[in-house]
Computed example of a mutant assay.
Amino acid sequence: MRLLVYCLIGLLFISHDGYCVPSRLFDLVGELVDATKGALGSIPSLIPTPEEFFSLSKNTFIGLPNQVVFAFFNQFCNMALNSNSVFVKKKFTPKLDEMSFILHSKSSSISIPLMKPDEMWKHPEFNTSNPLVIFVTGWKTNLKEEASQAQNVMAAAYMCRGNVNFVTLDTAAFIDTLYTWSAFNTQTIGEYLSKAVQKLVESSFPLEFIHLMGHSLGAQICGAAGRHFNQNTQLLIARITGLDSANPCFNNGGVLEGLFRGDAAFVDVIHTNPGVLGKKEAIGDIDFFCNGVSPLQPGSFDVSSSHGRAWKYYAESVYPGNENNFLARECTSITALNNNNCLGPLIPMGYATPNTTKGNYFLNTNSKSPYGEHSRRDHQPVCV
């Protein structure tokens, strides 16, 4: 059956003359609805795991436009979520009692259960005089080595800056399939993250000190946390940063709610793989489109590495002296920007983004580190 799902995803894009025909795709999807409903109850076992899905995108889909492939996947996911099948009704709850926060310091990393956040807020390494940043890993970043790499790189950047409580929430190994990931886990994990933040605020920790940040799925978890926090307290978390917020199955007005402006007092979003693994739509108070709306970043040859550029760009901007590495201008397209048709001031993307800015901003990046077009290649950050 899994092979059948793969074949359908590929074959539905090809017309009789061998060209990709999206309109025909959606006609065929309509014809498949009745047949699909009977199989929806078993879909959780048919949807590929993250490892299989990325392998699928590199092999089965070679020669097919990635954005068109994922547009179909989105439609298929929405059709399933909006049905009345067992697929929607049956919940797969993540093992929350096995999930942990990691409180990073220069000398150690302290693991604290997600269900016992008070232990973290009262830990000697947690400084209530310093701001708090919570970084949530995502679907792409829980593929083995990239989860630890994303956490380690981001933690190193914040530890270099100093004067911050940097915490990570690793979702690795708790999201086994795209179905469980998209349908339920973002909302459930987000709810418990919001409860942890609420306990901290109730202890008189300044609300304006709290910054949630997530990559891919992690961005959608942060969005859910922001909404739950607001529903329970009528307050807004100061800032949520979406690092290429996950695209598949998250659509405005759909069953699943993704990160959106209003989930925090300030929502900034960095787009590096728009329309494929990351959202293409402007969803924040300010949205940064790196190198336009192309799904591939300079120097990247697959969608997964482009998807991961978002957290790499942000981490680079955190180091002292790098705040202005990524300067963007409000614009309508990367072409207009490159033709000098965009007016207005340059705004830094990443760590130093002003929380008063709004709109769609475009910028170019380098193909390798340092990625910031305005970076000084000989600059060596001085860590605190």
Rank of each mutant, 00 (worst) to 15 (best):
V133C: 10
F92L: 09
C77W: 10
N82W: 01
G162A: 07
L96C: 06
T168W: 00
I102L: 10
N78F: 00
N127F: 01
V153E: 10
C77I: 12
D97P: 08
S148V: 06
I112V: 14
N78C: 09
C77R: 03
T137V: 08
F92E: 15
K106V: 08
S108T: 14
V133G: 03
N165K: 03
Q149E: 13
A156D: 11
K140P: 01
N130A: 15
K95P: 06
K95R: 13
P94Q: 07
T128H: 14
T128D: 15
F76K: 09
E98A: 07
H104S: 05
K140D: 12
L169C: 03
D97S: 15
Y158H: 13
N163Y: 04
G138H: 00
L103S: 08
K140R: 13
C77L: 14
T93A: 09
N127C: 07
F87A: 12
E145V: 07
F166Q: 00
V88N: 11
N127S: 10
M79D: 10
K89D: 11
L143N: 09
V164L: 12
E98W: 01
N165D: 04
L81A: 11
W139F: 12
W121E: 05
N127Y: 02
M99N: 07
D97K: 14
G138R: 02
F76T: 12
T137I: 08
N82T: 12
L96G: 08
P113F: 01
T93F: 05
F166V: 00
V86L: 13
T168Q: 01
S108N: 15
A150S: 14
I110N: 09
S107P: 01
R161H: 08
E119P: 02
R161S: 07
M159T: 07
P117W: 02
T171F: 03
V136M: 03
K89G: 07
N163C: 03
L81C: 08
D118V: 08
K106S: 14
T93P: 08
E119S: 10
L132A: 04
L81V: 02
T93Q: 11
M115F: 00
A150W: 00
W121D: 04
W139E: 02
V167L: 03
K144D: 14
S109E: 14
F92V: 08
S107R: 07
T168H: 00
K91E: 14
S105H: 09
K116W: 00
L81S: 11
Q75A: 13
P94K: 05
K95N: 13
S111Y: 05
Q149G: 02
M159A: 11
V136S: 09
C160S: 07
L143Q: 13
M115A: 06
Y158L: 03
N74L: 03
I112W: 01
A155L: 04
S105T: 15
S148H: 08
I102H: 08
Q75H: 13
E119C: 05
W121G: 05
M154A: 03
D97V: 11
P113Q: 05
K89F: 01
V86H: 12
I134Y: 02
V133A: 07
N82E: 15
A155T: 03
A80G: 15
F101W: 04
V86K: 13
V153T: 14
M115C: 06
